[in-house]
Design a protein around this nucleic acid. Structure first.
Lengths: 131, 131
DNA sequence: TGCATCCCTCACATGGATGTGAAGGATGCG
DNA sequence: CGCATCCTTCACATCCATGTGAGGGATGCA
């Protein structure tokens, strides 16, 4: 029953909606990637917006970034235009530039190889009759 | 002295030229990603072309693909047009399609986040005066 | 010949993401 | 009430990429 458009949810629902084991939701919290509040229970209470955030985290993890880095870049993606220059220390900027370049290289490598796979698949699927 | 454009090299040279610890070169071999031949010594002898292959492997690893998958996709990238339909079993094709899609998703995620970082950096570096 | 430097294999260690389960408290339904 | 189902914490286990070092053989130079 409990309306499906609620503002908050417990770990089970977030787990289902993101396809992420509860264990990992706790792990991401431990790593400082998400910060759910707590009910009087002690139960974790997740805001609706955390669904997207968790999916984003998983995407980045899957793309090979470690939680330590994800933790650093997430804040920059949160505030769409509400840039907060507060913690934009020079080292932070350097870290971000560095990571941006790493990501670019990763993207290039992935794209190159994915295209090669596509090419291969096309070849196999089109003129396979000529085996 | 031994000419630097040789056809083959030992593990030390390959390690230097690819920036890869010897340990890992042996590991990649153990995982079936590369297949150096052996001198009478027992020493591994690497073909010149393995330089690029190792770099490619490292790129894919860095992008988050496990060796198990890399092993499966490498053969498709080797033969530029010399497609070998021999081992193109239906499951293999399915695996490749699946992996291609995963890579596409990864690329999208990385691109999205990298662009967000870029945007943030631009903002910080351009109108930082308005802190 | 001795010594440095490469190579070999074997094997245990580490760090990060994830699996799994125990032991127990909260909630809610019959 | 009893029982199922959710939640809590704690802790050990696994997989994978990588580090590290021991013990020993090969090569080559002084």
């Amino acid at each position: 029953m409990r309306g499906w458009g609620d503002e908050h949810m417990r770990i089970g629902e977030l787990s289902e909606r993101t396809g992420t084991p509860r264990r990992l939701l706790r792990y991401y919290e431990e790593q400082g990637l998400i910060l759910p509040d707590r009910c009087a229970n002690g139960y974790r209470s997740y805001d609706e917006r955390l669904v997207d955030r968790v999916l984003q985290i998983r995407g980045l993890l899957d793309a090979g970034l470690p939680t330590r880095i994800i933790k650093q870049i997430l804040p920059c993606l949160d505030k769409p235009r509400l840039i907060h220059f507060s913690d934009a220390t020079p080292e932070m900027v350097a870290t971000l530039e560095n990571e941006r370049d790493r990501m670019t290289r990763r993207i290039e490598c992935l794209t190159r190889n994915r295209d090669a796979i596509s090419e291969y698949l096309d070849a196999v699927l089109n003129n396979h009759a000529t085996s």
